[in-house]
Design a protein around this nucleic acid. Structure first.
Length: 434
RNA sequence: GGAGAGAUGGCUGAGUUGGUCGAAAGCGCUCGACUCGAAAUCGAGUAGGGGCCCGAAAUGGUCUCUCGAGAGUUCGAAUCUCUCUCUCUCCGCCA
């Protein structure tokens, strides 16, 4: 799949050489293997195409002879042999393609030059802050206690219905969640120029491969029994694969999508982490932003996308900061990532609420998404893909409930949300079920 | 779930005794002629991917692959066989 889409050996080589310069990421063996496989592929291709040319020519001759009722037995015999050789070469090419794919699928993206080197979370430099955590004259409660008191969150019955790491929102809690994602979509659609898509919540394995969830991270996904379908862990998967295998007109770039979906994650390996409340769930809601950008513009677009996500926090009046992920904390497929972290009074710290990444051509290669200029001889080239949460709705719900609590059991509704909640200014304790 | 029909270039649509078919025709689009200008008319061009060659680059040259996807038969497949995907029609079921 990848090899057929064109390996672009020079580009790959340059990228891999860049990898070599990264501290602690020596991959000489992989580069050598890639190069030799690529050379091998071209060599075989050259041979087999010559044979095919011979066969095509002979085919015409045979047709002519047959039409003239002349015998063509010796050409036929000769071509049978040529045909066998072609078959052999074709199989070799297919085998090399498979090897190349296996190799390429296992190589993580190369961090952009501006990404700070580091070992993990503790090395992520802060880029900027916005807003001040409000000084509270009382001990802030966390969203679980507040939610229970307000009658808007029910963890116990969710556990009964399904299991751990699920939740039920009730009454104004459900309404608040719905208001949030509607507000987010309206903002991105009206003010930021994104096209709203409502995609399937499950996709096939090809799509999962396109954005990089497969083959390496199958354990993080929920798969539907007896099918090739997976529940999406993020709308990034359907929104990015939307153009898989296509060539976009250059003039259409950048293409900007926003979409709301539930997200499903098995959270394998996170046992004991964030076990309380809504922070880490198997199912949560998210509004996602996705861009397909010209390679020359993708880092500008990343800044813009991050700013678009920040707008949500600013308009909701939530204090947050932006950090750049260091090389050691970055995901498998990203070239550069900014995390937005919102202030949570109950934890007295900033927690991730959005992750905005430029994948450069990493996903575009896997999903084979290209663009082409209008000029006559223009060659297709891979687009750059970007995405970011704008925002994770559940965590935004948490941030609002915690940051807007007034100490008397009430929670103020941010100005921009009131029209979505029938003008309501506060959430007050109530028992929706009597 | 049952029965049947289909998938061809930007679009519509020919092609089904396998052989100069990557493909008729029409529409659309581009350029040119006519016109003060436009319409109409006339003429020419017009699928895409990949490799290689020439070149600073563009233009260009050449080979190859692609008629939903994959496999097969054959010297040769849009045309024959198998599997899969999708679309449409009828029946059943259902929000």
């Amino acid at each position: 799949m990848l090899a057929k889409a064109g390996l672009e050996a020079k580009k790959t080589r340059a990228a891999l050489e860049a990898l070599l310069k990264e501290a602690g990421q020596v991959r000489i063996d992989k580069i050598a293997a890639l190069e030799s496989l690529d050379a091998k592929r071209r060599g075989i291709l050259f041979e087999v195409e010559q044979l095919k040319a011979e066969r095509n020519k002979a085919s015409q001759e045979i047709a002519k002879k047959k039409a003239a009722k002349e015998p063509a037995d010796e050409i036929l015999a000769r071509m049978k042999e040529v045909s066998d050789r072609i078959k052999g070469f074709d199989e070799q090419v297919a085998a090399v393609d498979r090897e190349l794919d296996d190799l390429l699928l296992g190589i993580p993206n190369v961090p952009h030059a501006s990404v700070p080197l580091g070992c993990g979370e503790e090395d992520n430099p802060e880029v900027r802050r916005h807003g001040e955590p409000g000084a509270m004259a009382f001990a802030p409660k966390d969203h679980v206690d507040l939610g229970a008191a307000l009658g808007i969150l029910d963890m116990d019955r969710a556990a009964k219905l399904t299991g751990a790491r699920f939740s039920v929102l009730a009454g104004d809690g459900a309404r608040l969640e719905r208001a949030l994602w509607t507000f987010m979509l309206d903002l991105h659609r009206e003010k930021h120029g994104y096209l709203e898509l409502l995609p399937p919540f499950m996709v096939n394995s090809t799509s999962m491969r396109g954005t990089g969830q497969l083959p390496k991270f199958e354990a993080d996904l929920f798969k539907l029994a007896n099918t090739d379908y997976y529940l999406i862990p993020t709308a990034e998967v359907p929104l990015t694969n939307y153009f898989a295998g296509e060539i976009l007109p250059e003039a259409a770039l950048p293409v900007k999508f926003c979409g709301f979906t539930p997200c499903f994650r098995s959270e394998a390996g996170s046992y004991g982490k964030d076990t309380r409340g809504l922070i880490r769930q198997h199912q949560f809601n998210k509004v996602e932003l996705v861009k397909f950008a010209h390679p020359d513009k993708s880092y500008e677009e990343l800044e813009g996308l991050t700013a678009d996500a920040e707008q949500v926090l600013q308009r909701l009046g939530l204090p947050y900061r932006v950090v750049t992920l260091s090389s050691g904390d970055m995901g498998f497929s990203a070239a550069k990532t900014y995390d937005l972290e919102v202030w949570l009074p109950s934890q007295k710290r900033y927690r991730e609420i959005s992750s905005c990444s430029n994948f450069e051509d990493f996903q575009a290669r896997r999903a084979n998404i290209r663009f082409k200029g209008d000029a006559k001889g223009a060659k297709p080239a891979f687009v750059h893909t970007l995405n970011g949460s704008g925002l994770a709705v559940g965590r935004t719900w948490v941030a609002i409930v915690e940051n807007y609590q007034d100490g008397n059991g009430r929670v103020a509704v941010p100005e921009v949300l009131r029209s979505y909640l029938g003008g309501k200014t506060h959430l007050e304790p109530s028992k929706p079920l009597g």
